[in-house]
Simulated assay, not measured.
Amino acid sequence: MTGPLTRRYRRLLLAYPRAYRRARGDELLGALLDAAPPGRARPTAREAADLIRHGLRARLGRPASRTVVAWAVLVAVVSGVFAAAFATRAGWETARPLPRAAEARAMLAEVLPGQEFDDIEDAPALFVIYGQPLSWNAAHSLLFFDGGEYAQAGVGGSAVGVPARPPGETVELVQRNLREHGWTVYPTTLRDMYGCVGPPCDPAAIPTGATIVARRGDTTFTMEVNPAYAGNPGYLGAVFQRATPVAVYPFGLVGGLLGAVVAFLVFGWASRRTEGRHPARVAVKPLLGVVLFFWWVPTLWTLPLAAQHHLDEPHPSWHPMWEWLGQPTFSLLFLVGCGAALLGLALAALPRPDREPVGTVPRAG
Rank of each mutant, 00 (worst) to 15 (best):
G209W: 04
W295Q: 10
A270I: 03
P314V: 11
Q308W: 14
P233K: 04
R216S: 12
V261P: 00
V290N: 03
L288E: 09
M223P: 00
T208Q: 15
H319F: 11
T219F: 02
A247Y: 03
G195L: 06
P203W: 05
A263W: 00
V291Q: 03
R272L: 07
L253F: 15
V213R: 15
Y235S: 07
T244V: 11
A243I: 00
P286G: 08
W295N: 06
T220K: 02
D218H: 07
A283E: 09
M193R: 14
N232L: 10
G289S: 10
G276A: 08
T222V: 11
T302H: 09
L257W: 08
G259W: 00
Q308P: 08
F251C: 07
Q241L: 08
T222F: 04
Y249S: 10
V262G: 01
S271T: 05
G231S: 01
W301T: 11
N232E: 14
L257G: 07
G231Q: 02
P316D: 10
P199R: 09
G256P: 08
V266D: 02
P203Q: 03
S317W: 04
W295K: 01
H278P: 01
T219L: 13
V213L: 09
G268C: 06
W301L: 14
D218I: 02
E313N: 13
P199E: 12
R216K: 15
P298I: 02
G252I: 03
F294G: 07
A214K: 09
P245D: 09
T244N: 09
R281N: 11
G289R: 08
P316E: 08
A230F: 12
F293C: 13
A205M: 05
M193D: 08
H309K: 14
L303P: 12
W318S: 13
V261L: 11
G209D: 08
C201F: 04
G198M: 04
L300V: 15
E275T: 15
A247P: 00
T220M: 08
H309E: 14
L300K: 14
L287S: 01
Y194S: 04
P199W: 08
W269M: 06
T211C: 01
G256W: 01
G276K: 06
L257I: 14
G234S: 06
P320V: 15
P200V: 06
V266S: 04
L287W: 00
C196L: 04
L253I: 15
M321W: 13
V254A: 12
P279E: 06
T222G: 06
G198Y: 07
V248R: 04
E313V: 14
A210T: 02
P227V: 08
E275G: 12
G195A: 13
G195N: 10
A230L: 12
D312N: 14
Y229H: 12
